[in-house]
């Protein structure tokens, strides 16, 4: 474990707490001008469920196991909140990204490009590829509504920073322990890349107190 990865995981936690806070505070999944994509949250739940199949078989540390349980539980809870508790505020007509394309693409790629052709390894690889593109429905929704509440932008900032810091962690691990993992490196780079234009708007506007509006 290194500081980059620890802070990255904490940013991931923060993003989940921001989302839960937003939903509890506004008691909805849609604010005045921004919405949370149910598809993205369902994709994240899928990512954690397919990645942590080794939850009981591969004990790394108490930290690792605790975080895995938290990510699975929180992502399922968020899906539950959106699907049941705050269902009335969830408008599927605005969540129009074709999620089946990214699920199908990630599954096909995981069957072709993986480290071992075993059920667990292919599921893990699928979860890595899926996580890279799981934010697309949310970003797509943002482009449709054209603006977002500040708390939604903080959620996206934390989420983007988590994987961005993992890139730094991978550089550090390659440099210190010759750790190489092409699949997570490339997927992580794509994942962080998807946030670039968001980060640009976030840093140039939101942090200056302006509203988050797409040009």
């Amino acid at each position: 474990m290194n500081l980059f990865r620890l802070v990255a995981d904490l940013m991931h936690l923060v993003s989940i707490f921001i989302l839960l806070l937003k939903m509890q505070k506004t008691r909805s999944v849609a604010g005045r001008c921004s919405r949370i994509s149910f598809k993205t949250q369902a994709l994240y739940a899928t990512v954690f469920l397919t990645r942590y199949t080794d939850l009981f078989a591969n004990f790394q540390s108490l930290y690792n196991t605790t975080m895995k349980v938290f990510f699975i539980a929180s992502s399922l809870y968020i899906v539950f909140l959106m699907k049941f508790k705050f269902k009335a505020t969830n408008d599927p007509r605005l969540d129009t990204f074709k999620a089946q394309y990214v699920v199908g693409g990630a599954a096909a790629l995981a069957l072709i490009v993986n480290y071992a052709f075993t059920v667990q390894e292919v599921l893990w690889t699928f979860s890595i590829y899926l996580e890279a593109v799981a934010i697309l429905p949310q970003l797509f929704m943002l482009t449709k509504t054209g603006e977002a509440e500040v708390i939604t932008t903080h959620y996206l900032f934390a989420l983007g920073t988590y994987r961005g810091l993992y890139l730094v962690n991978w550089i550090y691990r390659y440099w210190t322990e010759y750790y190489v993992d092409w699949i997570v490196w490339i997927a992580g780079a794509v994942q962080t890349g998807l946030y670039c234009d968001f980060f640009y708007i976030y840093f140039t506007k939101v942090l200056k107190g302006a509203k988050f509006e797409l040009p």
Binding site: R5, D9, H12, D54, N58, Q60, N64, M67, K68, F71, Y115, A116, F117, E121, W124, Y166, N169, V184
Partner: peptide, 10 residues
């Protein structure tokens, strides 16, 4: 190369 990948990251 196929390796029994033990994934130590989240």
């Amino acid at each position: 190369e196929p390796k029994e990948a033990i994934h130590d990251e989240l």
